[in-house]
Simulated scan of single mutants.
Amino acid sequence: MNIFTHPPSRPYRNLFVAALGGVPAGSLVVSLYIALFESSSLAQAFTIVADALPVSFLGYVVMAPLLLLYGFPALWLTLRFRLAGPAIALAIAMLPALCILVSEGAGDDAISWLPLAISLATGVAFVAMAYRGAAQPHQFRMG
């Protein structure tokens, strides 16, 4: 499998499902990090982890237009030019978050890493779903 040109299976459905799963996964990872390393009490840690769900709903508000204006057109272009491999898909998924992180500056607070965690979770979920399955073995002719 070529990591740059291997076409995904069911790309648009997998991108939509990856976005549905990536938003809560990324926000939960950041919430767990904040709860473990930056909370001062157990009650505050539980509150921070519980806040991952409302943050996910806000993440969906941002993810919906991002999918329509960036994700689906970028996927269409990579499919059109036969460059829709897993490495490029992950890079394209990470690009908006990296732009946000660079434009705002990598702050000391963990919440500034939230877009990057959501993009990474969405990209990994898309790659895992769209490129799963065994590679096609080469068929040799006998005789």
Rank of each mutant, 00 (worst) to 15 (best):
A19C: 15
V62W: 14
Y70G: 06
G21Y: 01
A130H: 00
A117M: 05
L66Q: 01
L120D: 11
A25W: 02
G59V: 00
Y70F: 12
L53A: 14
L90E: 01
T122C: 13
L20G: 11
Y70S: 06
F81M: 11
Q139I: 11
G71L: 02
L67T: 04
L116P: 01
S40A: 15
S31V: 08
D109H: 11
A19G: 15
S56H: 06
A91I: 08
L75V: 06
P24E: 09
P65E: 08
L77H: 09
A87M: 12
S27W: 11
S103Q: 09
Y70V: 01
G105M: 00
M129E: 08
A93R: 00
V49L: 09
F16T: 04
G133M: 04
V55W: 10
L83P: 05
A110E: 06
S31M: 08
R80I: 06
A25H: 01
N2H: 05
M63Y: 03
I92H: 13
L116N: 06
G107F: 07
P96M: 05
L114S: 10
D51R: 15
V102K: 04
A74T: 06
A91F: 08
A45E: 08
L68W: 06
S27E: 11
L83H: 09
L77M: 09
A117W: 03
A128R: 06
Q139Y: 14
A84H: 01
I3E: 12
A110G: 02
G59K: 03
G85T: 00
D108V: 13
D51P: 09
A121F: 09
L77Y: 07
P96V: 05
P86C: 04
P137Y: 02
I100L: 15
I34Q: 15
A89N: 04
W113Q: 12
L20K: 07
D108Y: 13
A97G: 13
P7H: 02
N14A: 04
P11E: 04
A91G: 14
V23C: 13
F4D: 00
L120A: 10
N2V: 02
N14K: 13
S112G: 10
L58C: 03
L36E: 03
S27I: 03
A19D: 13
A84S: 09
R80H: 12
A125Y: 06
Y12R: 12
G123H: 00
L28M: 15
A18Y: 08
S103A: 14
L98G: 13
F140G: 06
S103Y: 07
D109K: 15
R132L: 08
R80G: 09
A97M: 01
A45W: 07
T78R: 10
T78P: 05
L77C: 07
E38I: 10
Q139F: 15
A134H: 02
G21S: 01
F81S: 09
T47S: 15
M63G: 08
L116F: 07
V62A: 15
Q44D: 04
F126A: 00
L83F: 08
H138R: 13
L98C: 13
V127C: 11
S56A: 14
V29E: 14
A93K: 00
A97R: 03
W76C: 12
P11V: 06
A97T: 02
L83Y: 09
Y131H: 08
S112V: 10
A18Q: 03
A97I: 02
T78Y: 11
L98Y: 08
I34W: 12
